[in-house]
Write a protein that binds this DNA or RNA. Structure first.
Lengths: 207, 207
DNA sequence: GATTGTGAAGAACTTCACAGCC
DNA sequence: GGCTGTGAAGTTCTTCACAATC
C-alpha cells in the first residue's frame, strides 16, 4: 500500500463518518460526487483518496458503502480500539465526559483528571476520575494513547509536557493556548476562538 | 499585498493568538524559531508566512511582538468585529454561550437559538435567545455573519441550509455530522469524534 | 554568533483527462 | 448517459540556501 498523504487521511476519516450515517439511513451505494458534496471536496479528490486504499473495485459502478467503509477502517486502522483520557473537568471537559458516541467508534475515555478534589468527588460519571498527580502512572498502567486537554489555557503546556513524559501518542488540545510537543507526538487543536479567527480571516479574504 | 495561501492564513491566525499570550507575559520580541516551536511549524515556514504581510521589517533582528501582531490583525482583518450566533443550546452550546473570551477578540455571540422553548426560558444568559423559526430574520436584522451549529447531528444539515438562505458568511459546525454548503460559504468542522479518528489514524500511520 | 527576507528548488497535493466499465 | 481508476499535468505549499543585517 502506498503512503497515504496526510490530507487524504483526514478526508478518509471524514468519509468514514459520512458512510456510517448513510449506512444507518439504509443507503447501499454512493458516488464520488455525492461523497464530495458532503465532505466539501471534488469528485476527483475523493476518487484519488479512495485509490490509496487496498480496496479492489469495479470501475463504472458506485461505491458499495459497507465495503468502502470496511477498507477505510482497515487501512487507516480505525478499528483499533484506543483509550483516551480527559484532563480538566470544566464545562467542556464534562460535556465530553458525558458524550456517549465515542464507544461505538472504538474509543474509550478511560480516565479523567482535574486539580480539584472537589470536582472529582462531585462529578457523577462511569469514568474513573483522579487528581492530576496520578496522570503519568495511570496513562502507563491503563495503556492510554490519547490525551484530551480541557484545562484553563495557562495549564495546557504543563499538562502537555506531563503527557509527553508519559509517552502519550496523540493530543487533542481544546484550550485556547498553543501547545508545543515533540515532532513524534500527533497534535490537533480545537479552539473555538481560533476557529472564529480563521473563519473571520477567510471571510475577509474572499472579498 | 500578495495573495496569502490558505494554510498561511490559518497559521498566522494561530501566531496572532500566540503573540497575545506572549504580550501578556511581558515579552517584547520573538524569533521565527520560537514561534515555530509554539505553533508546530519550521522557522522557514514562519518567516515565509510573515513575509506575506505588508509589514516592513529590519532583517537580522527578532520580531517586535506588538508590531507583528498589529500587522497580522490588520492584513487578515482580524480587528473587524463580527457577530456570530449559536444554534443548539445543549451542553456544548451552553458552554460556548458562557465563555467570556470571545469579546476581547472582537467576536460577539449576538443570539442563541433552540427548538425548545423550555430551554430558551430556563437558560440564564446575557445573550438573547430565540426559537429556531426566528433564525433567518434575526440573522438579517442583526447583521450576523457566522453561525455556530451545536445541535444534534440529525439537525445539522437543515440548520446549515437555513443559515445559507439567511446569507451567512461562515459556519462552524460542532456536530458529528458532515454538512455541505455552497462553495462561497466558509465552513470548519469541530467534531471530537472526528478528531479522535484522525489522531488515531495518524498514530497508526506513524509505525 | 545570532537573526530575517526571499528567490529558487523541491515536495506535496489536487485536478485534469481519458480509458475502461456498467 | 452514468460511473470509477489513474498517470500526467498543474498548482500550491514548504523548505532550502544564502545574502544581508544586527
Amino acid at each position: 500500500m502506498k503512503k497515504i498523504p496526510l490530507p487524504a487521511i483526514e478526508r478518509l476519516s471524514n468519509i468514514y463518518g459520512l458512510l456510517e450515517k448513510l449506512e444507518k439511513s439504509g443507503i447501499k451505494t454512493v458516488s464520488s460526487t455525492q461523497i464530495g458534496k458532503n465532505i466539501n471536496a471534488t469528485n476527483a479528490t475523493v476518487r484519488k483518496d479512495i485509490s490509496y486504499l487496498s480496496m479492489p473495485n469495479v470501475a463504472g459502478r458506485d461505491y458499495d458503502i459497507a465495503k468502502l467503509k470496511k477498507y477505510i477502517g482497515q487501512d487507516l486502522k480505525l478499528f483499533q480500539p484506543r483509550k483516551a483520557c480527559l484532563i480538566g473537568l470544566g464545562r467542556i471537559g464534562t460535556a465530553i465526559l458525558a458524550y456517549e458516541g465515542f464507544k461505538e467508534e472504538g474509543f474509550e475515555i478511560a480516565a479523567g483528571f482535574d486539580v480539584s478534589l472537589n470536582k472529582i468527588e462531585m462529578i457523577v460519571s462511569q469514568v474513573s476520575l483522579h487528581l492530576i498527580h496520578e496522570l503519568e502512572s495511570i496513562i502507563g498502567s491503563k495503556g492510554i494513547e490519547i490525551g484530551i486537554i480541557c484545562t484553563p489555557p495557562e495549564a495546557a503546556q504543563d499538562i502537555a509536557n506531563k503527557l509527553v513524559r508519559a509517552k502519550i501518542k496523540g493530543i487533542i488540545n481544546c484550550t485556547t493556548a498553543m501547545v508545543s510537543v515533540p515532532e513524534e507526538v500527533i497534535i490537533r487543536n480545537i479552539d473555538y476562538t481560533g476557529y472564529l479567527r480563521i473563519v473571520s480571516a477567510l471571510i475577509s479574504q474572499k472579498k
